[in-house]
Design a protein around this nucleic acid. Structure first.
Length: 438
RNA sequence: GGAGAGGUGGCCGAGUGGUCGAAGGCGCCAGCCUGGAAAGUUGGUAUACGGGGUAACCCGUAUCGAGGGUUCGAAUCCCUCUCUCUCCGCCA
């Protein structure tokens, strides 16, 4: 959520910042709504003050044993007026809140304007893509051996966009997770955390997925489907997490941290569930875009002065994984048209995929500034003023496990169809150095 | 799933209709005391929004798990929801 004070005091500035995202802010509607809110609030509070003072007078009169009947009669007329004012205020406030919750974060000044991913800015290329003496296979063909990567069975079990991993490929997948967690905890100072994969609506609101992006989520319905479908009305709405950023970041919701507790650094392995609504026909082949995938996430909660340094640092942490695995990648800064709802600045890391002969996203690292913190009421206490202030939150993949597996399969493929295991990973494969041998 | 008990400030805990943002304690901050500290002692110690003031600050409103109701007036009474704890059942 954006700062309501800023919205009141400098709407044009907000509109300008949001225009970088190609988001058009209806300034007139917003300021008119706020003007009404203010008038109604003052009127309501006036009436409440009067009611309070009268009630107090009655109480005092009664305690002196005086006759309070005349006072009561005088008061009976106030009720309706107060109620009307209160209702009108609540209505306008709700309208205003609804708008506020759908406004995206303001992007940092360094974020370039642009329409879509084509306008993202490449910052650096690291590593050299491998060369092959033959036309490299893609991961689907490589994984076909002994049904190590099995989409048919997954379709039978569930439907499209799911996969079954078997044998050495399942083992390699697991090794990757453990490798990443170990690097982040032992070398990068993160605390490993394990969290629920099912969360409530409040949690999703905190990180910004709700109310605007419900279509991207899997919502749980249980028990009697007929009566539970509208479970939200009774407070029972649970969703599968689209990323562990959601539960991990929300661990600091409604808390006030001391400066000594900062920065908070968590790394978390979890499955992620995404409906992929609106991506029909995209990446339909292979493991690239699935309804369920696994990810090792990094989350930091930091002092506002530190967040942009933390963004660079976290990007470096994700890059370290790729470097250790010997994979070529590039780093891009997302343009206004491609950046996510909650982020003020995002770096995408894209790994080289030989079969596609292109770089594909494998990590996304974002500084969400105070946007999520305000929604979550995640604050710290300034040691000098003793006042509470909003924290800054960051999240980044370190890395998407499925896509890392793809990258290894394609980049480390050998002419006989087997896949070499990167050296850094071998301690995690029990010394196995090649998988999917003929 | 059944039965019961409970959710009050950073924490513990009192408060069953009136001047209660809420006793008391702990913690924290500041002063005094001390060579310094502990102990002692005095004072302070929530958040949000609105209004006023250059500012320190002052005034108003709201907040005692959440929402609704009763009432001139609700932390206190009623209803719904939610979470926690105890016992029983079931279960990886």
């Amino acid at each position: 959520m954006l700062d309501p004070k800023l919205l009141r005091n400098d709407l044009p500035l907000v509109a300008e910042r949001l225009s970088v995202r190609n988001f058009k802010l209806d300034q007139d509607a917003l300021s008119e709504l706020d003007r009404r809110r203010k008038a109604l609030q003052q009127r309501t509070e006036e009436l409440q003050a009067e009611r309070n003072s009268r009630a107090k007078t009655i109480g005092q009169a009664k305690s002196r044993g005086e006759d309070i009947e005349p006072l009561l009669a005088e008061n009976s007329r106030m009720g309706d007026e107060l109620e009307n004012a209160r209702d009108a205020l609540a209505e306008v406030q709700a309208e205003l809140d609804a708008i506020l919750l759908t406004l995206p974060n303001m992007v940092d000044a360094s974020v370039p304007r642009g329409r879509d991913e084509a306008d993202n800015l490449e910052l650096r290329k690291v590593g050299t893509p491998p060369s092959f003496s033959y036309e490299p296979l893609d991961h689907v063909d490589i994984g076909a051996r002994r049904s190590a990567l099995d989409f048919e069975t997954a379709t039978k079990l569930t439907g499209s966009r799911f996969a079954v991993l078997r044998g050495e490929l399942a083992m390699l997948h697991r090794a990757l997770i453990q490798f990443m967690l170990d690097v982040h905890t032992r070398e990068h100072g993160y605390v490993e955390i394990n969290v629920p994969y099912v969360v409530n609506a409040e949690t999703l609101k905190g990180t910004g997925q709700l109310p605007k992006f419900e279509d991207d989520l899997f919502r749980l319905v249980w028990g009697d489907v007929g009566t539970r479908a509208d479970a939200g009305a009774t407070g029972n709405d649970y969703y599968l997490i689209p990323t562990s950023e959601v539960p991990v970041t929300n661990t600091v919701r409604d808390t006030i941290l001391e400066v000594s507790e900062l920065p908070v650094r968590y790394t978390c392995h979890s499955p992620c569930f995404r409906s992929e609504a609106g991506s029909y026909g995209r990446d339909t082949r292979g493991l690239i875009r699935q309804h369920q995938f696994e990810k090792v996430e990094m989350v930091q909660v930091v002092h506002p002065d530190e967040s942009y340094a933390a963004l660079e640092q976290m990007t470096g942490h994700a890059e370290t994984i790729l470097q250790k695995l010997g994979l070529a990648y590039r780093v891009v800064v997302l343009c206004g048209g491609d950046i996510g709802f909650a982020a003020a600045k995002t770096y995408d890391i894209e790994v080289w995929l030989p079969a596609q002969k292109t770089y594909r996203e494998i990590s996304s690292v974002s500084n969400c500034t105070d946007f999520q913190a305000r929604r979550m009421q995640a604050r710290f206490r300034d040691p000098t003023t003793r006042k509470t202030e909003l924290l800054h939150t960051l999240n980044g993949s370190g890395l998407a496990v499925g896509r890392t597996l793809i990258a290894i399969m394609e980049n480390y493929q050998q002419e006989d169809g087997s896949v070499a295991v990167p050296e850094a990973l071998q301690p995690y494969t029990g010394g196995v150095r090649t998988v999917l041998q003929p």
